[in-house]
Amino acid sequence: MGAAPIRVVLAKLGLDGHDRGLKVVARMLRDAGMEVVYLGLRQTTGTIVDAVEQEDADVVGISMHNAGHLTLAPLIVAALADAGLGDVPVVIGGVVPDEDLDELAAAGVGAVLGPGASAVEVVASVRGVVDAGVRATGD
């Protein structure tokens, strides 16, 4: 039996309804052999944390097209940490300008996928943060 599939929780945080990117990413990850727990639109930090916990997710991907990522990304990172899930990496996707990357990294975001990220980049990024997490916890 091969390695178990990576389990990813995918969600949109906030009110914006642009889910084209999230759906495309869900399919990309599925086609790369991952199991995608799809939460879809208008999730709160609470529903995302519940899902990450109950689904034992390896990574959580959040899509934002509302220009609110500098406010919202730190909130989800903090909410995961408060729930004892600080080791689950957060990947942010959507409309994120390059100049925000340092601030998001400092806030604890594992990776950022900007507009136009290819399937290869998306999959590599998700695998990358999961692998890095395994090394960090040492098991």
């Binding site: 906030g14 009110l15 914006d16 208008r42 709160t44 097209h65 509302n66 220009a67 609110g68 990522h69 500098l70 406010t71 919202l72 909130l75």
Partner: peptide, 19 residues
Amino acid sequence: TLMGRDSDHPLAIGEVGRA
């Protein structure tokens, strides 16, 4: 506004006036 929520609604955090 598009979602019919006031600017002081909890779900509006981070999105008021942004887009």
